[in-house]
């Protein structure tokens, strides 16, 4: 079984690398395959610029966003013992959207949106955690309820910001950011996402064993010496860090964090470290392929990647909900 699992994860990682390599050669500007891969290192001219400064960072951002969301979803679903937990559950996307809306209203340059989104995501998540813990024993249900509440509040305030914007262009910018897209993100954003993803993954590794024990239930996990509350807290922090990094470079890309862990679980079984290890490359693969369709299906028109993912994601989501109720 162990061989099969590691083989599966390796295969997923290889598929991700292959998808990324193919992606570099496809786009609205024709660059031949060998030229495109060569342009990653050097080269002048429009083709080289397009590949190095527009296509490559976008693919890298897609990989990071997908890996982050997939891993974060896998962790949260186990820690909160809820198959419908999503990395944005604690308010990361709501907080990010609100912060970007405020940045746009304040007339901040577009290069600051990433930082604003990250700050907003962390702020909203912190509020959720503080309220849930301040209320005493923080059961996973309380965490979820508080997260939903904070997210709704942020969404309402964001809608208000859209309505109150003094310029129509500002409203359009906010709506467009909320839609989720990998376009318009250069290397600075990729470096930033790498940093947050690394921090989130490091935290993840620290708690993965305890988390695995929690699959048996809170009582049994406590019985084998796992600090359930602390593990849950660290997981929520780690997954929120991953979600904040992802949302800050791509806007709200839904369903990846929810669905990828379920698919990964089918491939490698229920063990948490393995599910997380498989969810990362699988998430990256899903986002890279979706973005390839978004920019390659009808060039030079860009399709909204968030909507593409939802078209595939919603039916899959309904299937999960259907199965879950049957089990219950």
């Amino acid at each position: 079984m162990a061989m099969t699992r590691s083989a599966t994860v390796s295969l997923l990682a290889a598929a991700l690398v292959a998808a990324a390599a193919v992606s570099v050669t496809i786009g609205a500007v024709h660059v031949s395959g060998s030229d495109a891969l060569g342009a990653l290192r050097h080269g002048e001219g429009v083709g080289a610029y397009v590949v190095r400064e527009l296509r490559a960072p976008r693919i890298a951002a897609g990989i990071l966003v997908g890996c982050s969301l997939g891993t974060a979803g896998a962790l949260l679903q186990t820690a909160l013992r809820n198959p419908l937990a999503d990395p944005y559950l604690m308010g990361a996307s709501g907080g990010a959207g609100l912060a970007v809306a405020l940045a746009i209203l304040a007339g901040a340059p577009a290069s600051l949106y990433t930082l604003a989104a990250f700050g907003g995501a962390i702020a909203a998540t912190s509020v959720s955690l503080a309220v849930a813990r301040g209320a005493g024993t923080s059961s996973q249900h309380r965490l979820i309820l508080v997260g939903v509440g904070v997210s709704s509040l942020c969404a309402a305030l964001t809608t208000l910001a859209i309505l109150m914007a003094p310029h129509a262009g500002m409203s359009l910018s906010i709506l467009s950011w909320l839609g989720g897209s990998l376009t318009g993100h250069g290397w600075p954003d990729v470096r930033w996402a790498t940093l947050t993803a690394a921090a989130g993954l490091a935290l993840t590794l620290a708690v993965a064993p305890s988390l695995d024990a929690m699959r048996l239930g809170r009582e049994r996990a406590a019985g084998v010496g796992v600090d359930v509350m602390r593990t849950q807290f660290v997981v929520v922090v780690a997954s929120s860090l991953l979600a904040a990094g992802a949302v800050s470079v791509s806007g709200v890309i839904g369903f990846v964090g929810l669905l990828v862990p379920h698919a990964a679980r089918r491939l490698v079984g229920g063990s948490v470290p393995w599910v997380a290890a498989a969810s990362a490359p699988l998430g990256g693969l899903v986002v890279v392929l979706a973005d390839l369709v978004a920019r390659g299906a009808a060039p030079p028109i860009e399709l909204p990647v968030g909507i593409l993912l939802s078209i595939v994601g919603v039916p899959a989501f309904l299937a999960i909900v259907g199965r879950t109720t049957r089990i219950a």
Binding site: G27, A28, V29, V46, Y49, V50, E53, L54, R55, P57, G107, A108, P109, A110, S111, H167, G169, S173, S181, T183, G184, G186, P188, R295, P299, P300, I301, E302, L303, P304
Partner: peptide, 29 residues
């Protein structure tokens, strides 16, 4: 429609028309 950044770089339009106010045009593309 949303237009491809790479195609915009390749077709290099002679004139850009923008609504005012607009955010600064920094970095790629």
């Amino acid at each position: 429609p949303q237009y491809s950044q790479e195609r915009l770089v390749a077709v290099h339009p002679e004139i850009l028309v923008l609504p005012n106010p607009h955010p600064a045009l920094l970095g790629a593309p």
